[in-house]
Structure formats: C-alpha cells, structure tokens
C-alpha cells in the first residue's frame, strides 16, 4: 500500500495557465522522494496541494488509500507535517513554545498541552539536536538552528509523511549535510516518509531513494537517481548542457554543467 499517491493531479492559479498537469506518483513507507525541476515547474505548488492548503482542480490524492479531501484539517495535520522554505515568526516565542505548537492537532479548543505533549516535544527536540535551545527565544538563534526547530515542530505532530520545501536552501554546506543526514535518520529510525523539493541536483542524487522531475508542471521523470538522472533529460529540462560523472556512491551520479 502506498502511503501517499497522486493520480493525474492538475492545478492552475489562472485558467489556461496550468501549474501542474496530470502529475501521478506514489510514495512507499519510509521512502525519501526528492522533487526537482526549474523555477516555476510546480514544486512548491505540489507541496501546498499535498498539505491541503490548495485544492486540486482535477485528479486524486490519497493517503493510505483514503482520499485527502476526506481528512479533516486536524486529522490531516496528524498525518502530514510541512517544513516551509522559510518561516517568519511574528512574536518572540521560545523554541519549546514553537515545538509545542506541533501538538495543536491533538488538542481540544481550550485544552493546554499535557505531559504526553511535552514528552513528544522533548523527543522532537532531542531528535533534531535542539535540546539546549528549548528555552531560547526563536529570534535569537541562527538560521540553521531555526530550520531544525521548525523540523522539530513538524516532528511533534507525529506525522507519517513529512513535506519539506527547499529545506536546505538557506543553509551553509555544514548545515545542509547535517540536515539531510537528520532526514535520513528520521526515515530509517522513525519510518517517516519524506518528500522534499530542492534545486540542488547533487543533494537529491546523494540522498534520495526516488527522484521526481517536474518540467512545466508535468512529470518529466520518476525513478531512482541512477535511472532518472540522465544528461539528455536534465539538459532539456534545465535548458543548459549538463554532464554526469560517476560518483563515489553507486547509482548516484554527480551532475556538472558543461562550460
């Protein structure tokens, strides 16, 4: 059974200008799927649709074979957690307060967080290596730390699926790799299925189990890195000449522009 599956998903903001066209793909349990494609290829829109923020125009999305639209907002938030590219937080909450917000889908309207909620928050902080930050104010910490805190908040939701929109775009190399290794750990230890978008083809090649290539809203390729990353396809999609060289890691090619 696929944990997440889409069938002929289509979407447009304006009539006649489709952002996504007949996108079909599926994700297995504890799988890491990278979505790549040029700017405007529909990557972020895909995440917004999968998280229920935008309604698809046509096509189906199902989570464990149940249609996404049949989930209430709160129930959906218990299945799927989202880490946006950047989070602007308005007031000076502490890191712990931010992470506890991930428990909202489990609380009744006037209910405060209880023991279990605190425990889940602590565990999420531990997993993301943010324990020492718990009491700090969110606007005092660095960008890399903040992205980990937002991930901790998402993990506090106890999701089965994690969607991340260019999670490493604003991080330096150290934090990029650290963040990706953390995702791998979540995948293998907590059995969370992970979908992330990225502009870094090599990051996708090294870390993803599957890669989905979007080009102008259409699926241009889907498969494991070794299969799907080929120079002709990528050169066409990105409209530049690209070369692939074998990597240290089998079936994970390294992509270089031709100059």
């Amino acid at each position: 059974m696929k944990i997440l599956e889409t069938e002929n998903l289509s979407f447009s903001f304006q009539p006649g200008k489709p952002v996504l066209q007949k996108v079909s793909f599926g994700m297995d349990d504890a799988q890491m799927l990278a979505v790549i494609g040029p700017n405007g290829s529909g990557k972020s829109t895909l995440i917004r649709i999968l998280s229920g923020v935008l309604k698809p125009e046509a096509g189906k999305i199902s989570i464990q074979q149940k249609p996404l639209l049949e989930f209430g907002k709160k129930n959906l938030a218990r299945k799927i957690a989202v880490v946006p590219q950047q989070t602007q937080i308005t007031f000076s909450y502490t890191v712990l307060e931010i992470v506890l917000m991930g428990r909202a889908p489990y609380l009744k309207r006037f209910q405060l967080e209880g023991k279990r909620d605190l425990e889940m928050a602590r565990r999420a902080l531990e997993l993301t290596d943010c324990e020492e930050l718990a009491g700090r104010s969110i606007d005092e910490i660095s960008g890399g730390e903040k992205q980990r805190v937002i991930l901790a908040r998402a993990l506090a939701q106890e999701p089965e699926i994690l969607l991340l929109d260019e999670p490493t775009a604003h991080l330096d190399l150290h934090h990029q790799i650290g963040f990706m290794q953390l995702l791998i750990q979540l995948k293998t230890e907590s059995k969370i299925s992970i979908l992330f978008t990225t502009h870094d083809l090599n990051l996708a090649s090294i870390f993803a189990d599957q890669i989905l290539i979007l080009d102008q809203g259409k699926v241009a390729g889907l498969g494991n890195p070794g299969q799907v990353l080929n120079p002709e396809l990528l050169s066409r999609v990105y409209q530049i000449k690209l070369k692939l060289i074998p990597n240290l890691y089998p079936n994970r090619p390294y992509i270089l522009p031709e100059i």
Partner: peptide
C-alpha cells in the same frame, strides 16, 4: 476560543492551516 489559533498564525497563515487551523 481563538487564542491558540493566534499562536499558530504567528508561524504564518499557511503553516497555521497545515497545523489544522481553519
């Protein structure tokens, strides 16, 4: 009654929605 939703909205409207806020 909306107080907790206000907390979630501090993360941005879309994040709030993804956390179950209408």
């Amino acid at each position: 009654g909306l107080s907790r939703d206000f907390n979630l909205m501090a993360l941005g409207e879309e994040s709030a929605e993804q956390l179950g806020v209408n």
